[in-house]
């Protein structure tokens, strides 16, 4: 395989990992591991917003690539698949065509269907409302609100307006819908419905990745993810707070 092709495979794997929510050290390890499998000596530097890679090709010229990462989602299945893919390359360095086919089949994975995710986005708040010792009625209200805010969030993410806008709007939607729910059925408890329905928007992945990054010495990325977590939490919180202050006082 040519040096350029090796880098292409490595970059593609790294990009998929990073957009799937992997830790920084895992991305760097994977890129370097793929390059080493083909006897290419590479130096790689990864930030949550980009991958930088430099190698020396056969003629002794340095070759450098930068891949900017703009969209970050969470897809742990792809992280796992790419991880085992790169390990299999280490034992059995396949040809460029085969490697690309393997990578593309991982990237093309659809994951769970949208309908199932919507349903699950409803069941999660339902389970948490019950876990916080809520009544069945509160759990059902959270179920509906959970589905609605997941739908809103996905729609906004698809159009892609601003980074944290979808969190703000979903938080506000959760607040408004919960206030509406208790106005319609006054016997329900407001706080359980809201907590249960915003729980899946909380930045669990950002925080865990931030810690792992710090542990491996990637302090810049760690700060980045911590800030991201704070921004997400703040956006959701402000959304809920606006809905609550307006909803409880004037309606």
């Amino acid at each position: 395989m040519k040096t350029n092709q090796v880098i292409e495979v490595a970059l593609k794997a790294g990009e998929t990992l990073l957009t799937g929510g992997a830790e920084i050290y895992r991305v760097e390890d994977t890129v370097i591991r793929i390059c080493e499998s083909y006897n290419v000596d590479a130096e790689c530097f990864v930030l949550p917003t980009g991958i930088f890679i430099t190698v020396i090709d056969n003629e002794g010229n340095p070759v450098s690539f930068v891949r900017r990462i703009r969209k970050r989602t969470v897809n742990l299945e792809k992280v796992e698949k790419i991880n085992s893919f790169s390990r299999s390359l280490q034992n059995n360095p396949v040809s460029y065509q085969e490697a690309m086919t393997g990578l593309n089949s991982i990237i093309g994975l659809e994951g769970y269907s949208y309908a199932l995710k919507l349903l699950v986005a409803g069941i999660t708040p339902f389970a948490y409302a019950m876990l916080f010792r809520g009544t069945l009625a509160e759990a059902c209200a959270s179920f509906v609100i959970g589905i609605v805010i997941y739908f809103i969030k996905e729609e906004i993410t698809r159009t892609g307006i601003f980074e944290f806008f979808e969190n703000f709007i979903s938080g506000m939607a959760a607040g408004i819908l919960s206030v509406l729910a208790i106005k319609l059925f006054p016997f329900m408890d407001l706080y359980r419905i809201i907590i249960a329905s915003i729980i899946i928007m909380l930045p669990g992945l950002a925080i865990t990745s931030a810690i792992k990054d710090a542990l491996y010495g990637d302090i810049v990325s760690s700060m980045f993810r911590l800030t991201e977590a704070v921004f997400i939490a703040a956006a959701v919180g402000v959304g809920v707070a606006i809905a609550l202050s307006v909803g409880l006082r004037w309606i």
Binding site: N75, L76, E77, E80, I123, T124, M130, L131, I200, G204
Partner: peptide, 17 residues
């Protein structure tokens, strides 16, 4: 049981295998 469901469901949203 609820905690069990409550972590499987986010797992589905995060596309765990």
């Amino acid at each position: 049981l609820l905690a069990f469901i409550g972590s499987i469901c986010p797992g589905v949203i995060y596309n765990v295998e």
